[in-house]
Amino acid sequence: MLKTIPYLLLLLVFQCTTIGFHETKIREGMSFGEPASFRVCILHEPNITQEEIQNLFVAWNEELSLYNLKAEVLVLEEMERPGFWGTDILSYLMTLPLTKECDRLLYLKGRTWGDIAFEVLTLGIFVGVGLKLEVQGAVEGRSNTRGYIKAKYQSTIQILFTSPKSTLIHEGYHLLGCGHQLFMKECYEKIRDVKLLLTDPNRDPNFFPNMTTSGKKILNRTQVPTYSQQN
């Protein structure tokens, strides 16, 4: 049992803090084209400050600079969380169409008394059986254009394995079409291919394109699915 603990810890770190392990030589040998930017529209809970939002994007843009990319933040609205669970948040986001100002849509989840109680519960489960139940963020898989992160937290598990900045970087890779992999080569190729879509003649010139993890091209907002709340 003791021999398995390092592997469990490695798996937890891999799941929580990164999309995969960087392969610097491979990345530096690839061309990611000219500098480009995309617009990320933000919805956030009332207890998240503008300074915290800006600090998150500074960290994300430092990572994105590896690919000649920059995320431009546009804060749309302060609003209460549409539900306690991450699935509630994603379901709500799927009802919102991407407007002409937005290439991606991101909800920043705060920290309530209910979250604190859940953190205590999950910490007990983690200590007891080594199972981590708390999810720090997610991106929908139909177009990889909407997602959420937990932007304010401080439980023991979270401090050990992740942070709001690393969570945004992780989910930010999903927002550029990357899936999960052990090493980053496939993700580098996906980001390169997404940037190549900027030259696609069928692209809406007012939309930063994307690809799904299965390789489907998202060239305009009409290809981004939107569902009614009844669905």
Rank of each mutant, 00 (worst) to 15 (best):
D193P: 00
D88H: 08
R111T: 01
K150I: 10
L175E: 04
V194P: 13
L90V: 05
V135N: 10
I191D: 01
E119H: 10
K152D: 11
I125Y: 14
W60V: 05
G177F: 04
L106D: 07
E189A: 04
E189T: 03
Y173W: 12
L108E: 09
E140G: 00
F118C: 09
G128E: 08
I159M: 12
E72W: 01
W85N: 09
D193R: 13
M184T: 09
I157F: 07
A117Q: 13
S155W: 10
F126L: 15
W85I: 00
Y173G: 08
K152L: 14
K195D: 13
T162N: 12
H170F: 02
N68E: 15
C187F: 04
F183M: 08
Y173P: 00
L98R: 12
F161P: 03
A138C: 08
E171V: 00
H174N: 10
K150R: 08
G110W: 04
F84R: 11
V127E: 15
V75K: 08
W60A: 14
E62R: 12
L90Q: 04
K190Y: 07
F84S: 09
G147E: 03
G177C: 01
W113A: 08
V135P: 06
S143V: 00
M79A: 10
C187E: 11
A151S: 15
S91E: 10
V75E: 14
L66G: 01
L108P: 08
H174P: 06
Y188L: 01
V135Y: 07
Y92L: 00
L182P: 04
L196T: 08
T167L: 02
K190Q: 14
L131N: 05
F126M: 13
L108W: 03
K190M: 14
T162E: 08
A138K: 13
E62W: 07
C187L: 05
R81A: 02
S143M: 02
K100F: 06
W113G: 03
L64G: 11
W60F: 15
V73P: 01
T87N: 13
V194W: 01
G172S: 04
V135C: 09
Q136S: 14
F126H: 11
M94H: 12
L64W: 09
V135A: 11
F118H: 12
V129C: 10
K195F: 07
F126S: 13
V129F: 06
Y188S: 02
L66Q: 12
I169G: 06
E186R: 14
K132D: 10
A59P: 03
K190P: 01
N61M: 04
L106E: 06
I169N: 09
G83Q: 05
I116C: 06
E101Y: 09
M94Q: 13
Q158T: 03
I169C: 06
E186S: 12
L93P: 04
R104P: 01
L76F: 07
L105T: 01
Q136R: 06
E78G: 09
A151G: 11
L98P: 12
E78C: 04
L66F: 11
P164E: 01
H170S: 05
S91P: 00
Y107K: 08
T122P: 02
T162G: 02
E134V: 06
E80I: 05
Y153Q: 11
T95W: 06
Y188Q: 11
K165A: 15
V75R: 03
P164L: 07
I169T: 15
I116R: 12
S155L: 03
K190C: 14
Q136G: 14
E63G: 02
R146N: 02
L123Q: 14
